[in-house]
Structures are given as C-alpha cells and as structure tokens.
Design a protein around this nucleic acid. Structure first.
Lengths: 222, 222
DNA sequence: GTCTATAGAATGATAGAC
DNA sequence: GTCTATCATTCTATAGAC
C-alpha cells in the first residue's frame, strides 16, 4: 500500500498558481482538476447516503457514467476519496475555528461564534459531515485518518477553555461541567445534519440562532 | 437506488405483527435460548464497534469461537441478528415512553421523564443505540426495518405534543420551535452513546440531570 | 450444535488497448 | 480519460457429515 500521507503534519501550504508545473500523485488532493472534484462530490453524496463501506467503487463509477476501473485513473483507492472529502472539510473548519479563538472576544461571544461556524458548514459540507458522523468509528483507527482524532482534540481544547473562562468571568453557570457541555453542544450541532434539508423552513443561520437561544437561556419561561 | 433485495425469492411472510409475541428464527421457536442471546450480544458489540456492514459473519463466529457456517444454525441471516438487536431495544423504550405519556403529568415533568428514560437506556442498550445511530441510513429503507421509521414517528408525536402543551400552559418559551427542539433534545441524548463510558465520572442519571438543568435553564448565569 | 466444504456473487484493484 | 477484461479476495449463505 502506498504510504503517501496526504496529511503529513503541519499546515498545508497552498503554493503556486494553476500552472500545474508540479503534479501531485493520484491519491493526493491539491491542484485538483475539475473532473476530479466532480467525482469527489459524487462519491461524497453516495458515502453520505449509504455509508462508506456500503458504497462500492462501482456505485461511484455508475454515478459518474464511467466504469469502475476508470476511477483508478483519478484515485489510488476508495480510501483516498473519502480522505479527500474529510481533509478538505477539516482544513476549512479548523481554520475558521482558530480565527474565532484568535479574535479573543468574551466567552459568550466566542461560543456563539463557534456555534455559528459549525452550523454554517451544514450546507456546504453536508455530505462530509454525514460521513464523519456515521463512519467515524471505522475510520478513526486507521493511521491515514489520524488527523481526525488530532483535530477533535484541538477543538475540544478550544471549547472547554472558553467555557471555563466564561465560568471564571461569571457569565456561565458554575454548576455545569465544561467538557460535558462541550460534547453536548458539539454533538447537537453536527447531528442536525441528519435531518437538515437545504431550502427547508430554517436555514443554517436560523438553526444556529435558535440553538444559541436555547443553549444560553433554556426552554423554560422565566 | 440500488435494489438491495438480497432476499432470494419466497414470500415475505411477516408473521407476528405489533403487540404479538415476536417471531424467533430457526432453531428455537418461542423460547430464546441462552446460547442464542449470547451470540446476539456478541454480534451487537461488533456491530457497534465496526458498523453493521463492516462486521462479517466470520467476525461474529470468531468471537463466539465457532465457524461462520455454524451461525446459520441459530439465525437466518446477518440481517436477522441486527433485527433482533434493534427490535428488542425499540420494544423496551417505546413501552417506557408510552408509560410516561400515559401518566399524564404536567409538560415539564413529562419531558424530564422522557429524557431520563432515554439516558437510562444508554448503559443497558449501548450497543443497540450505537448501531441505531450509525447504521440508521442503511437500515431504514429496508422493508424489514420499517418499524424503525414507524417508531420514530410515534416518538416525535409524543415529544412535540408535550412541548406544545408546555407552551400553551406558559411553562415553555413561546419562541422555540417544538419540532426543532424535540430533534435537538433527542439527538443530544442518543449521541452521548459515542463518548459515554460505563463506570466513568458520571452515570447515566447524572448525565440526565445535568442535561435537564442546561435544557430547562440554559448555561447563562441569571 | 458444530464442522467440512463449497457455491455463487460481489468487491477493490490492476494491466494494457484505444 | 475511458474501456475491456480479469484477478485475487472476501463475502453471505447452504448442504450434509458427525
């Protein structure tokens, strides 16, 4: 098996223009052709719908109107496709999270910013989030997808430290468990991908505001 | 839209409807043998850990110390095993939910009761809940698992009508969306199965009380 | 109730023609 | 960039011996 780590540690330097002087290996993201990106999107929809393992390379090829063997002109393996889907999503959300943290606003504002970012990914990254949710257990133990766990750890630190800061500044209740509260917020946001329908009654930002309302003040009348 | 109708011909005899005694597969009609239940538990652990599709009948047989063919003395198919896992869980929780609704208490008490029941299943039904979460999309479209969607619909009605009643009685805020709020509560509870560890810092009832606190009153100081 | 043995189908992936 | 053709494996499930 190729050991070409598509996500070798460190931030990815988006070098160069479209000149294409440097062509990456088949299984690597970056400098992606339009055709390639189209195939990745098709695969993402199928992975989201049926699960990674239940989706066959023939399913993907059928959807693209080509034969399964032809897929291997673009990708090294089925795994490299899902890798491209997930790493793209994680790069984007991690970058957005870090930006909010770096603003250094007050805890309530920071938490709201994180929540809005998460809900904001629901539409553009619906398939990736679904795959992350459903196939996490299967993927997380593979060396290739170690970045999933690393990212999860970093995100947890962001949230938990913000919640704790809020408690110290007396804007969040002292009798909530920071780690537990983080997990519940995180899960509630992501799991919305299961029933969220683009173009429905509420858009992602409407969902975010509704959720922030409940999370900050509860459902009781006061 | 793949036709996953792997069932070789033959009448889809759906013996035993709702409310009746459940059908048992081959081998032990009526009485659920201890051996059989042991195998179901082993399979449930594997399904939860690796996903239904990624778990092979050989994996299950290995875990039981027998060969894969021998499993078919107890079960008709791999599907019938996961069916047994999920239907058992759903029968129990639906019955418990209905009991709370039938008590006819005030909305806040009823919601709390439903939340406590859900968290209470986390420990005894950890594997079943994990399978339900991760493999829902794959299973929900099969005729055999139509009861999943039926149960989901019934549960949604219970929660939504209770939340609405709470709004009419002015104990819940009028500016929350009942259906949306139900989904967020439901998802938050079930998804806890991903990180809940029996014997950890908090037991399921501790989780339930923590969540009720946040859900009713929010994380803000007041 | 388990094993031996295997059928029959599907799967991920490859090599080379065009 | 796609197709033809196919390999090696793995999968669910079956039949019959013990």
């Amino acid at each position: 098996m190729t050991t070409t780590s598509t996500n070798s540690g460190g931030p990815k330097a988006r070098t160069g223009g479209e000149g294409g002087a440097r062509r990456r290996g088949k299984g690597s993201p970056g400098l992606a052709s339009e055709r390639r990106e189209h195939l990745v999107r098709l695969a993402a929809e199928l992975f989201a719908e049926k699960g990674f393992q239940a989706t066959t390379v023939r399913n993907i090829a059928d959807e693209a109107g080509i034969l399964s063997g032809s897929l291997y002109h673009h990708f090294d393996s089925k795994e490299s496709i899902v890798d491209e889907i997930l790493s793209g999503f994680f790069e984007e959300i991690m970058s957005a999270y870090r930006a909010v943290i770096d603003e250094g606003k007050e805890p309530r504002e920071t938490i709201a910013g994180l929540v809005r970012i998460a809900f904001g990914t629901l539409e553009p990254h619906r398939a990736a989030i679904t795959v992350m949710q459903n196939d996490w257990n299967y993927l997380k133990d593979m060396e290739r997808f170690a970045y999933l766990t690393r990212a999860e750890d970093e995100v947890e630190k962001m949230w938990v430290s913000t919640i704790k800061a809020g408690q110290e500044q007396d804007v969040f209740r002292p009798d909530i468990d920071p780690k537990l509260t983080y997990r519940m917020i995180r899960d509630t946001v992501w799991v919305a991908v299961r029933w969220f329908k683009p173009g429905g009654r509420l858009n992602p930002q409407g969902l975010a505001e509704h959720y922030l309302k409940v999370m900050f003040d509860g459902i009781n009348t006061h």
